[in-house]
Amino acid sequence: MENAAVAKKNKLRVGIPRALLYHKYGKLWEVFFRELGVNVVLSPETNKEIIARGARLSIDESCLSVKIFVGHIDWLKDKADAVLVPHITCLHSGEEMCVKFMALVDTVRNVFPGIKVIEYSVNAKKLETEAGSMIRLGARLAGNPFRAIAAYMKAKGAWEKSAREKKEAQAEKFAAARRGEKPLILIVAHSYTLEDNFLGRPIIDYLEKSGVCVLCSDRLDAARAREISKNISQTLYWTYHKELLGAAEYYKDSVDGMIFLTTFPCGPDALAVNLCQSKMKGIPSIIVSLDELESRVGLQTRLESFVDVINFKKCRKKK
């Protein structure tokens, strides 16, 4: 009887959209569902078609990141029985998430009426923890709470390991670059912008090809970054923006330039990034705002001239 139930559950295909929080928690979700014996359908890397689908379905004024997320769900909706949409309201007490994460579940439900959504809630203000919510979700899916606990433990371990590796890689890169000749540029952006195949990655690749050493703002110890962000802004309350500003503060004395990468029209970025840029005195910086109509050529010209300015400045300093 129980085997039959598990076998039936096994047929469930859970779709994970490769967008927004996937770029932070992807490893956690993949391992968790694999351990539970659930089939996972992962959407492909963001491409033009996904963006076009998302832009067509979303409200015009949604930010590009949400449009991409909607595009991924659209890709998944026929290929999976249910999609995973986390409902994250508050990660640490005294802080908040951008309201788009609070509304994500309802955005998906309203854009795709009738879609089956698998959600787990995290809200530090109501003592809803990630562990509690995910284990409850796992127990429901697998029909066995102990299996859910084991799966969560394993997933959390794998996630922590991959996050640590990322951080260590950046730390090594940073140490090597400080001794080297290459100019050092910090890209200040959310994980879901930096890691996206359509948004951040082409920019990072382009910069590395032009001989720049690129650091990413999301590869720093998050708690530490949030702590030092207070040097820039005392009243900032968005968790992820604290991490961005903290990274900017941490690297500000060692980098030759900063690129603020935002997705149009990101609400919190409009305030936090502008504040941060004006406090980074003496560091060359540009704000690159990405939208779904982005022409690659215009962006390339801007990056090229920025790299030129930085190289020029570095040469002059040496003389």
């Binding site: 004024e61 930010c63 509304a103 309802d106 309203n110 609400g267 409009a270």
Partner: peptide
């Protein structure tokens, strides 16, 4: 206002 985050989320529901 243009780009108001909570109201944009509300619009998806209002459309339905």
């Amino acid at each position: 206002p243009f780009g108001c985050m909570p109201e944009v989320s509300a619009m998806a529901a209002l459309n339905n």
